[in-house]
């Protein structure tokens, strides 16, 4: 009963918070609601015995990406009229896309197996060896190639940022 209650709380709150994020007029408030949202998602990961993922969710999303968002928004210093013009025109299109997405979910929902048989990585197996150990082993053996490709993509992004920043100085 208790797990269901917890999950119900998180499901309802996460939905509510997502709505708050997209309806706030002040972008800084939106970012803050998103921060609360991310912390709730991290709590859901803890709930699933994925402690490592929860910590990374907070460190990477809340600690790095959202702070960057906040930085950009604060430095842009948007005026009220601009926000209302640019960011509120897309409501009809957004509603349409959202409705289609919900329809899509309703159609595929009964194709899901709710409690599939546990595979190789059951909760006991992960707790026996430690969260970080299991993830590390899988990343560096089974998924080595995708992992390296992802790091290459990130490297390209870093180099791109450096190139963009350098150009301005030389002009």
């Amino acid at each position: 009963m208790l797990p269901e209650l917890f999950f119900a709380y998180f499901a309802v709150t996460i939905t509510g918070l997502s709505i708050l994020v997209i309806t706030r007029k002040n972008p800084v408030h939106s970012v803050l609601w998103m921060l609360v949202l991310f912390i709730h998602i991290a709590a859901l990961y803890v709930f699933l015995n994925a402690e490592f993922l929860a910590a990374v969710q907070i460190i990477v999303y809340a600690g790095a990406i959202l702070v960057l968002f906040l930085f950009v928004i604060m430095l842009l210093n948007l005026r009220k009229e601009e926000i209302e013009q640019k960011f509120q025109k897309q409501w009809p299109l957004g509603m349409l896309a959202g409705t289609l997405f919900i329809l899509f979910f309703v159609i595929i929902l009964n194709k899901f197996a709710v409690f599939p048989a546990p595979g190789e990585y059951s909760i006991q197996a992960i707790q026996g060896e430690g969260n970080i150990m299991v993830i590390g082993k899988v990343l560096y053996t089974e998924y080595l190639l995708p992992f390296e490709i992802a790091s290459l993509v990130l490297l390209v992004a870093i180099i791109g940022a450096v190139v963009l920043a350098k150009k301005k100085i030389s002009e």
Partner: peptide, 12 residues
Amino acid sequence: NIGVLYILALSS
């Protein structure tokens, strides 16, 4: 088990 990461997360 993730004590170190927990502290880093909270400091961020």
